[in-house]
């Protein structure tokens, strides 16, 4: 089946980003296709490369980046949510006059339409949140 996964919470504060990751990995191992992972609300904080978790803890952001690279997954941060929370890529930095970027590899910033499209194009939409 073709899946779209929505993640509504940031890393570490809530378990939802962990559950979403383990679910995504299990789905890929079973040969399912992930059409898109859409990060919304505080979930956009999964896409900053500037996190430094303790060495003995999981690195949630890097884990997403590696999953995206290994399986060519489209991982989208909602632009409105990202702007509110300061997640910035080159395009956003230029448009909004920011002096830095912080988006992690494998993520891109785009509109809410990408979530709606996920609902249209996928067999299942599954939401992980608080």
């Amino acid at each position: 089946m073709k899946l779209t996964i929505q993640v509504n919470e940031g890393p570490y504060q809530h378990q939802s980003a962990d559950t979403a990751y383990h679910f995504a990995k299990a789905a890929l191992e079973k040969g399912h296709e992930i059409f898109r992972i859409f990060f919304y609300h505080d979930g956009v904080n999964n896409g900053t490369r500037l996190t430094t978790p303790p060495q003995d803890d999981r690195n949630i952001v890097r884990r997403w980046s590696e999953l995206a690279e290994a399986h060519n997954i489209d991982m989208v941060l909602c632009v409105a949510a990202a702007q509110r929370r300061g997640i910035v890529d080159d395009g956003e930095a230029e448009r909004n006059g920011k002096d830095a970027t912080n988006i992690a590899p494998g993520f891109r910033i785009s509109g809410l339409g990408q979530l709606v499209e996920g609902g249209i194009e996928s067999d299942r939409l599954i939401v992980f949140g608080d």
């Binding site: 509504n8 990995k25 299990a26 789905a27 191992e29 079973k30 399912h32 599954i126 939401v127 608080d130």
Partner: peptide, 20 residues
């Protein structure tokens, strides 16, 4: 169930509702 079983349940049902 484990995470693989979770995936199977998502597939076996037509849709998923997360009561967040």
């Amino acid at each position: 169930i484990d995470y693989a079983g979770f995936v199977d349940l998502v597939e076996a049902n037509d849709k998923t509702q997360s009561w967040l």
